[in-house]
Simulated assay, not measured.
Amino acid sequence: MGVAYNDQKVSAKKLSEFAAYDYYPEKWEKSVSFNAGAFFFTFVWLAYRKMYLFSFLYYLLSAVVFFVLGELGISWLYGIVLFVIMGFIGNRLYLHFAENKIARISSMYSDPDEQRKRIVQAGGTNFGAAFFVGVVYVALFIGVYGSY
């Protein structure tokens, strides 16, 4: 498992250090896997896994499509479809994100100890960001639906 980036291969060991959780390396070995966190809590899960840009873009896409489809009365269908898609692509999305981060770090630092330190720091989770995104999402949800 791994990806070539500027002629460097991202090792399974570095991916495991980045994820900081044994769940992901096992899932990444499978061609298809399901992530319940990505399915049920997409915005929050993306922020929790430090994929902040993806979380923001997912929110924007969801908001735009929700309002367009809301006018047609089928926004609930979009929600179900998108949650299922994220459930099935969440692990692959995180793998791609991890591989790119690790490859960039590996190309910037030649010292293996410094690479490991930076990889561990860049990976893992951010509970604070997940909590913040969750609170903002709930507040926006109440703001939108509170008037109905």
Rank of each mutant, 00 (worst) to 15 (best):
M1R: 02
G2A: 06
G2V: 00
V3S: 05
V3E: 08
A4N: 09
Y5R: 04
N6F: 04
N6S: 07
D7Q: 12
Q8F: 02
V10R: 01
V10F: 02
S11H: 02
K14N: 11
S16T: 10
S16F: 00
E17L: 11
F18V: 01
F18H: 02
Y21F: 06
Y21G: 00
P25L: 04
E29Y: 00
K30N: 09
S31A: 07
S31Y: 10
F34E: 09
F34H: 09
F34L: 09
N35L: 04
A36V: 14
G37K: 08
F39H: 08
F40Y: 04
T42N: 11
W45E: 11
L46Y: 10
A47R: 05
L53F: 13
F54G: 06
F54R: 11
F54L: 11
S55R: 08
L57F: 15
Y58L: 14
Y59A: 15
Y59G: 15
L61V: 13
F66W: 12
F67N: 13
L69M: 13
E71I: 03
G73D: 10
G73S: 08
G73H: 09
I74F: 12
S75C: 04
W76C: 01
Y78I: 03
G79K: 05
I80Q: 04
I80V: 15
V81W: 07
L82G: 07
G87S: 05
F88H: 02
G90S: 12
N91I: 01
R92P: 02
A98W: 01
E99R: 01
I102W: 08
A103C: 01
R104V: 03
R104D: 12
M108A: 14
Y109C: 02
S110H: 10
S110I: 09
D111M: 08
D113Q: 14
Q115C: 05
K117D: 13
I119P: 04
I119H: 03
A122C: 09
G124E: 07
F127V: 15
G128W: 12
G128R: 13
G128K: 14
G128Y: 10
A129T: 08
A129Q: 05
A130V: 12
F132M: 13
F132V: 15
V135N: 05
V135P: 07
Y137M: 14
Y137W: 15
V138P: 06
A139F: 12
F141D: 13
G143Q: 13
G143C: 13
V144S: 11
Y145K: 14
S147M: 15
Y148G: 14
